[in-house]
């Protein structure tokens, strides 16, 4: 089966992280080869004919062949058989993809502009990072809080839209340890291309440890909690924190204690209260050069403790 593997090597598909990925690649390999043969037949035939029957003089006599029923039947029937075979093969794999395993590890995934919020059954929340144990059935329950997103792991060949107002589901059984990209594949606005997460496949022990650590989160230093919250609320999609570079909103790097120029030209010092106000009422004092109404208000969405943590985190960005 050298040639088959050769075709697959040429297919440029990413690493095969699951059994399903291997099945998909086999079907894709078959499709590539049949397609290649079909193209060679059609395009090759075309090139051969145009060269062979090149016009010699303006009075060339051409054959009068209006149709050939047998031939026409054959080239309708053979493609039909191939198409149906490919459909059945695809159906088989798809059935496996869409049938959720029993007793799978369930993880809730919430898509939002522009981050993935992951919630494990023990209440631990993470952002843009899914950690799963190897060789375990994992089921992701997807939904979205705003627009449609799509959870796409190229290495696992799986993709599913996260639709607001309902749940959709996705399962996989990772067989390789390592880190894999998670993309958002459904257009969702400004930072659609920045909505990249990672899926980390770890050993069972590491996974258990990760879960435990997650639960101890409450004991973290306040600025660290702020950092987690900053990621969790997807603030990082719009505000850079390690350089003065501008994303969607102004950078928060080295902002605290410095003066900022507002849109009416006035200046204000970025102290605790300014940061608090900017979180709760983002449109009250907008920095010069940035549009109104882009940042959502967090009034009523975070409590005082969380607010403290966020302010502390912004203070720590030096």
């Amino acid at each position: 089966m050298m040639w088959f593997n050769f075709a697959k090597a040429q297919s440029f598909m990413p690493t095969q992280g699951t059994e399903i990925a291997k099945q998909v690649d086999n079907l894709y390999g078959f499709l590539l080869i049949t397609s290649f043969i079909a193209c060679v037949l059609v395009i090759g035939g075309m090139i051969y004919f145009v060269l062979k029957y090149k016009r010699k003089s303006d009075n060339d006599k051409t054959a009068y062949i209006s149709h050939n029923t047998a031939l026409e039947f054959l080239w309708s029937f053979i493609p039909l058989v191939i198409f149906l075979a490919v459909f059945a093969w695809g159906w088989y794999i798809y059935h496996g993809m869409r049938t959720m395993p029993k007793d799978a590890l369930e993880i809730n995934v919430l898509g939002k502009q522009w981050a993935w919020e992951i919630e494990y059954k023990n209440g631990f929340k993470a952002v843009n990072e899914v950690v799963v144990p190897v060789n375990t059935d994992v089921k992701l329950l997807l939904t979205s809080q705003d627009v449609i997103h799509s959870f796409f792991v190229p290495s696992f060949r799986i993709k599913q839209d996260a639709v607001p107002g309902r749940y959709t589901a996705l399962w996989f059984r990772a067989e390789k340890l390592g880190e894999f990209h998670v993309f958002c594949a459904e257009y969702c606005g400004t930072s659609h291309s920045g909505m990249i997460g990672k899926l980390r496949v770890v050993t069972r022990e590491e996974f258990d440890k990760y879960m435990e650590e997650g639960q101890e989160e409450g004991q973290l230093p306040i600025a660290k909690r702020g950092e987690k919250l900053f990621a969790l609320k997807a603030c990082a999609s719009c505000h850079s924190v390690d350089s003065p570079a501008v994303k969607v909103g102004p950078s928060l790097f080295q902002v605290f204690g410095h003066e900022v120029v507002l849109e009416d030209g006035s200046k204000v010092t970025a102290d605790e209260n300014y940061i608090r106000e900017s979180i709760l009422q983002p449109n009250a004092k907008v920095v010069k050069g940035f549009p109104h109404g882009v940042m959502p208000t967090f009034q009523g969405q975070i409590n005082e403790n969380e607010l403290n943590a966020l302010v502390e985190y912004v203070k720590s960005l030096k």
């Binding site: 099945q23 079907l27 499709l31 193209c39 059609v42 459909f87 799509s150 993709k159 594949a185």
Partner: peptide
């Protein structure tokens, strides 16, 4: 069109499209 056509068939196959959709 030959190339467009055969890739169209690929995209019609369910599991292949799951990977290729919106890419």
């Amino acid at each position: 069109f030959a190339i467009g056509g055969v890739t169209g068939i690929m995209l019609a196959v369910l599991p292949i499209d799951v990977h290729f959709h919106d890419t």
